[in-house]
Design a protein around this nucleic acid. Sequence first.
DNA 1: GCCACCGGTGGC
DNA 2: GCCACCGGTGGC
Length: 340
Amino acid sequence: MQQSRSPKITIKMGGKRPEIALPDVNINHETSQKDQTAPDGPSVPSHTDEKETDENVLDASLSEYSTDDEDKDTDTPLCDDSQKQIVLYDHSLNVSEPVKTVKKPKSDKPLLSSKSPPEVGAFTVQCANCLKWRLIPDQEKYEVIREHITEQPFTCETTHQWNRVVSCDDPTDIEQDGTRIWAIDKPNIAQPPPGWKRLLRLRREGSSKFADVYYASPTGEKLRSLPDVVKYLKDHPEHSQGIGLARFSFQIPRPLKENYVRKRSKTAATTSPGYLEPPLVVPVQWAGPEQKMNVQLAEPLSWAGPMENQDGMPAYLKTPELDPVNRAAKKAKIYDINCL
DNA sequence: GCCACCGGTGGC
DNA sequence: GCCACCGGTGGC
């Protein structure tokens, strides 16, 4: 009965390409299955009223992302549905991570053709109070929210900043009804420096990675790693004033859908002639207790209360050390010392 | 030739 | 297992 446990934000992207500039947050893909219960909790009617147009749901103009947007947006922009994705911020993570949703195709086929990977169609952030997901009108706003999400939790009132009148009493903006792919974004990612744009390109399901992050420089170059940024700043001193590497983050959201990303293939060692496959293990033969455990772990996508751990974080978000921010900062520091 | 996309891998 | 990085390549 409670609403979703985590607040989220959605942003709609309208570019022709799958590129999306978004803040790092965890992303989860919804599959059409129930494996992913609406994060919003039971309150979320999982009705799939989206029909074929659902995909466009996220495409709906930002201005009209009302509760029923889902039904109305039919104006798909570019290519096909694959472009509607959403990024969400999951507040249940408690400060830890935002969630992103990506729109998903109805079939089990890849979101897009080989030439156009899925694009994030919207960004959502969960209200810290009611845990309902709120669509964020644009990427820039989403990035601002994400940057300080831990110190400044997002709430329904935050939407007043863009003159939207919504409160915790209003229904959620978006539900995990299986029509989109959701991913959890990383929190606290710095906004790109002025003149720069952070682009997120999602890969097709089954790829070795979920997405790629690029930074579009003021002069149009696309940089795909910190070393690239360092080189660019050195080569373009006119655009490096006051810009530290801490402003750049190549962290990508994490898909909530299990197996969206292909597991690492076997190494040469395991494929070499002399390698012997280990004996198969028959799960059924395992002791009872363990089986129970396995069952619970098998539902990482569920956002229902049970999913949370004692610390209030959903199981799937439990990433041990995972201190991307610090790690990035450390790395940035090294570059600062060596190159800037 | 360029570039968007993908795969692979070393390091952690 | 995750992440950062970079090489490869197919399509344009």
